[in-house]
């Protein structure tokens, strides 16, 4: 499964090369041309039989992770986060170095040694450290400040439909584009694998300025909200209820007509879909929409629980339905073309 391999690759913002090489190798035979731009975005292009509309689908290659900031005398490593990670989910986790797989753990005091007030307090990131089993700084052979470090998570199936892994945000989107490129469409299609989304939608900033798409559909792995609670409040998107569509998030109000078209197609084809809770999160669309003279954008996402942590869960039928919906939407945009 593509998603399994993509999820197991390590590629935080600025360190996307491994992911990019993997995608490049496999998408080559389906793309008419490929290019890597100055920021590391991988731009794949598939010619169409008609000239318009030019459609662009995009997913970001980068995931959240960590970076070594300090090699300490006492043999521990100081680090910082790359992208948004909740400090509560990182204590006592196993990590691996992107460049060579060296393992380390984020140290945490055992419960026996915790003082009363420490039990309810999360230590600051500057109080945490990575322990690679070194006695002193002299033991840091290959480790350098600036090294990227990742959750040491392996993809696995935990039930008939549900898989566990890291970086479903947004390797799910990468996998979707790779699958979509195997199809034939009437219109020209760009597949863009962007960089540095997690630290401020940076790769996408240059995409909209270079390419001139008529429609953009961002494919994402988005956070599910279906946590158990007695409160009668919004839990959308749910795992297993189909692709999540964005009405408005922090970065963008989706193009009304494009969103309506996506919903119409989902209904007609009997594909389940859900509207993502408005006002939360943001995607590359926020940047691309306001590039040049403006671009019509929408987002279709696979819901995943516990994103930005070492243990995301995703329902494979959501993935399948998202792929199906995206495919029909692209076909439809192609059929409208001239």
């Amino acid at each position: 499964m593509l998603l399994e391999k993509l999820s197991n690759l390590d590629g935080a913002s600025g360190d996307e090369a491994r992911v990019r090489e993997f995608i490049q190798k496999r998408i080559r035979k389906y793309a008419d041309s490929m290019e890597i731009d100055a920021l590391g975005n991988l731009i794949c292009f598939k010619k169409g039989r008609v000239k318009k509309p030019i459609v662009l689908i995009a997913a970001h290659m980068d995931e959240v992770g960590f970076m070594v900031t300090e090699k300490r005398q006492n043999g521990t490593l100081g680090f910082s986060k790359v992208g948004g990670i909740d400090s509560r989910v990182i204590l006592a986790k196993t990590l691996r170095f992107g460049k060579n797989g060296t393992k380390g753990v984020i140290g945490a005091k055992p419960v026996h040694l915790l003082k009363k007030e420490e039990v309810t307090k999360i230590p600051g990131i500057d109080e945490m450290y990575i322990d690679v089993g070194a006695k002193s700084h002299k033991d840091f052979k290959d480790i350098e400040v600036g090294d990227y470090v990742y959750f040491d998570t392996c993809f696995e199936k935990i039930s008939a439909k549900v898989v566990k892994g890291k970086a479903f945000d947004d390797r799910a989107g990468c996998s979707l584009i790779m699958d979509l490129f195997k199809e034939k469409f009437r219109m020209p299609l760009y597949g863009v694998f962007s960089t540095q989304e997690e630290i401020g939608l940076r790769g996408a900033m240059v995409i909209g300025n270079r390419l001139r798409p008529d429609y953009v559909i961002i494919l994402e792995g988005t956070g599910a909200g279906d946590f158990p609670s007695k409160k009668d409040n919004s839990k959308s998107p749910f795992l297993g209820k189909g692709p999540a569509l964005t009405v408005m998030d922090k970065s963008m109000i989706a193009d009304k007509k494009l969103l309506e078209l996506i919903i119409k197609i989902a209904k007609r084809k009997g594909i389940p879909y859900q509207l993502k809770q408005p006002g939360i999160g943001g995607t590359d669309a926020g940047r691309i929409q306001i590039s040049r003279k403006g671009v019509k954008c929408a987002v279709i996402a696979v819901p995943a629980r516990y994103i930005h942590s070492p243990v995301c869960l995703m329902n494979l039928s959501d993935y399948g339905n998202t792929l199906k919906l995206a495919k029909f939407v692209l076909k439809r945009l192609g059929d409208s073309g001239k």
């Binding site: 009668d232 409040n233 919004s234 109000i253 006002g279």
Partner: peptide, 17 residues
Amino acid sequence: VVTSYIDKKGFIRFSNV
């Protein structure tokens, strides 16, 4: 505003625009 959720009793939650 944009509506984000409707509870069982029909009260509508929303987010700011």
